[in-house]
Nucleic acid binder design. Structure first.
Length: 338
DNA sequence: CGCATTTGACCAGCGC
DNA sequence: GCGCTGGTCAAATGCG
């Protein structure tokens, strides 16, 4: 029962979190560089969710959404983890494959799909409201009907790959672990977490990549319906509702982050070219790429910067983002020794 | 004492 | 129909 994962956003910053699911306006469709319509000024150590976040329908990818908080996570300090390392392109591909097992290359309804993808997609017509799901959950608890006639409709999911030694990354939200399972083809168990906030049905799964144990794959499902209860080091936050992404923000940092530019690492020959198109990056120190190595339907976000630990000053925190080290594409191919 | 984690059991979906 | 696997529940346990 191979499952295809959701799209994977790979980052070295464990703060992968708070993001998620919502259809990505196809208007953002593109096939190369993605210029996140997010402005940032990053001064208080954070990116905020200042503006809107654009997103993609790359190579058939749609139905995705990246909560602006995504940006946060890229510059939010991670807990105690070890020195972050850059993830060379190769590994990205590998991971991508691992996580995105057999998918349907030509399928446009990539929507987050995973196990229940099939069903979800069929029923996805009737958009699921968070409340509905919660009701279902309640019902479940009572009769344990679980997925039945009313097969549970899942919200789009987002997977993030993070190089970290800690499994459960601190993303600012409070999570309660409700299960752990051994997963097939992986020596590492998968942990299931649910947002502890009442009425917030966001869930996330955390597991390590069997290929690269240093990689933690965090899959988020759902959208938080509340402000981030915790702003670790004042760096986490979610997109303001005004953005239309349903997020609620309470970031303690500047909400007008400088433009973030991402580029989509196309699967074929364009890949390298794309990577070299740094001019696309307004902020040359930070880049995030989408990679659809094996399966174009599942992009992989690759953060090209090593994690920058929080500093005592907000300005420095900001640097955590702005001073990221850019890794030339060629370096990806040839992982440097540390 | 309250909350989070652990862990075995249970259930549903899927492939054969 | 059966077995496998993923996902969830909930009692037991741990911890602050």
């Amino acid at each position: 029962m191979e499952k295809k994962e959701d799209q994977v956003i790979k980052t070295d910053n464990p703060m992968a979190n708070s993001m998620f699911s919502e259809p990505i306006p196809t208007s953002f469709a593109s096939s190369g560089i993605f210029d996140m319509p997010c402005e940032l000024e990053g001064e208080k150590g954070g990116v905020g969710g200042g503006g809107s976040l654009g997103f993609v329908d790359m190579l058939g990818i749609q139905d995705y959404f990246c909560n602006p908080s995504l940006f946060d996570m890229f510059q939010t300090p991670m807990p105690p983890p070890p020195p972050q390392q850059l993830i060379p392109s190769p590994s990205v591909q590998e991971l991508s494959e691992v996580v995105n097992t057999p998918a349907t290359p030509n399928s446009l309804s990539v929507s987050s799909s995973s196990a229940e993808a099939g069903n979800d997609e069929k029923e996805s017509k009737t958009t699921v409201e968070g409340e509905e799901e919660q009701d279902q959950e309640k019902t479940k608890k009572q009769l344990k009907p679980k997925k039945k006639s009313n097969k549970r409709e899942r919200e789009p999911r987002f997977a993030f790959m993070t190089r970290s030694e800690v499994d459960h990354l601190d993303d600012g939200y409070r999570w309660r672990k409700y299960g752990q399972k051994a997963v097939k083809n992986s020596p590492f168990p998968r942990s299931y977490y649910r947002c502890t906030t009442a009425a917030c049905g966001v869930k996330k799964r955390v597991e390590r990549s069997s290929d690269d144990p240093t990689i933690v794959v965090t899959t988020y499902e759902g959208t938080h319906t509340h402000p981030c209860p915790v702003t670790p080091r004042g760096s986490i936050g979610i997109m303001p509702e005004s953005t239309g992404f349903g997020g609620i923000g309470t970031s303690s940092f500047n909400l007008n982050p400088p433009p973030r530019h991402y580029y989509y690492q196309q699967q074929h020959h364009q890949q390298q070219q794309q990577q070299q198109q740094q001019p696309y990056f307004h902020n040359p120190t930070t880049s995030l790429s989408f990679s659809t190595t094996t399966n174009p339907t599942f992009p992989t976000f690759v953060q090209e910067r090593p994690f920058c630990p929080p500093s005592s000053s907000s300005s420095l925190m900001d640097h955590g983002l702005l001073q990221d080290i850019i890794v030339p594409s060629h370096m990806w191919k040839e992982p440097k020794e540390e």
